[in-house]
Simulated scan of single mutants.
Amino acid sequence: MIQGAALLALLVAGVPAAARPVSVRYLTPERFTDAENRLGSGQSLRVTLSEMTRIFEDLGRRLPPGDSLAVNVLDIDLAGYERPGVGLPQSVRVVQDFTPPRIRLAYSLRRKGRVVAQGEDTVTDINFMQAANPRFSAGGLYYERAVLRDWFARRFGT
């Protein structure tokens, strides 16, 4: 039986890239500031990038027909920081109001094949803890999802 992530991968693989409203590339992800757990707990880089791709694809569904968005992710710094566990085999991610997520990206929006907007942004929000509530969010990367949703709405008006 095919599980959720595998089914999604099969479905996306069957859709031509030109038909997808969002394409996401990660430039040197192994050098990202904080996109994976390096102290033994939390998610791997592969899982983080997969979830980030899903966030961008979900946002892309808000684009009008005929629009497409290309995103190059240049750096990811997840909300919070890793704190080594004292007497524990794993670390803990501590999220506080002074540890917002930061995602640096370059984007290009095309409408019917023509570039209508492009640029480079650092997506962050110092008030991220007030804007997002993990209890009401589907999937992981709650705070990153919220700041990207707000950026997308401001930047593309959808």
Rank of each mutant, 00 (worst) to 15 (best):
Q3W: 11
Q3C: 11
A5H: 12
A6T: 11
L7R: 07
L8Q: 08
A9P: 05
A9W: 04
L10Q: 06
L11D: 02
V12G: 00
V15S: 01
V15Q: 05
A17L: 15
A17K: 13
A18K: 14
V22C: 02
V24N: 04
R25Y: 03
R25C: 05
Y26G: 01
L27H: 07
P29G: 06
R38G: 14
G40F: 14
G40M: 14
G40K: 11
S41W: 07
S41T: 13
G42K: 10
T48W: 07
T48L: 10
T48P: 09
S50C: 04
S50T: 14
S50W: 09
M52T: 08
M52K: 00
M52R: 01
R54M: 11
I55H: 03
F56G: 00
E57D: 09
D58I: 01
D58T: 15
L59G: 02
G60D: 01
R61Q: 08
R61E: 12
R62G: 08
L63T: 00
S68H: 08
S68W: 01
L69Q: 04
L69D: 03
A70R: 13
N72P: 00
V73Y: 02
V73I: 12
I76H: 01
I76T: 04
L78Y: 04
L78W: 03
A79P: 13
A79W: 03
G80V: 15
G80Q: 13
Y81H: 12
Y81Q: 10
E82W: 15
R83N: 05
R83L: 15
R83E: 12
P84S: 05
G85C: 15
L88E: 09
P89S: 12
Q90Y: 13
S91C: 14
R93L: 11
R93W: 07
Q96A: 15
D97G: 07
T99D: 04
P101T: 04
R104I: 08
R104P: 00
L105N: 02
L105Y: 03
A106H: 02
R110D: 00
G113K: 06
R114L: 13
Q118H: 06
G119D: 06
D121M: 11
T122H: 00
V123H: 01
T124D: 03
T124M: 06
M129P: 02
Q130W: 08
A131D: 05
A132Q: 11
N133S: 12
P134M: 05
F136V: 10
S137A: 10
A138E: 09
A138P: 02
G139E: 08
G140Q: 10
L141P: 03
L141D: 02
L141I: 11
Y143L: 08
Y143T: 02
A146K: 10
D150G: 04
W151M: 02
W151R: 04
R154V: 03
T158D: 03
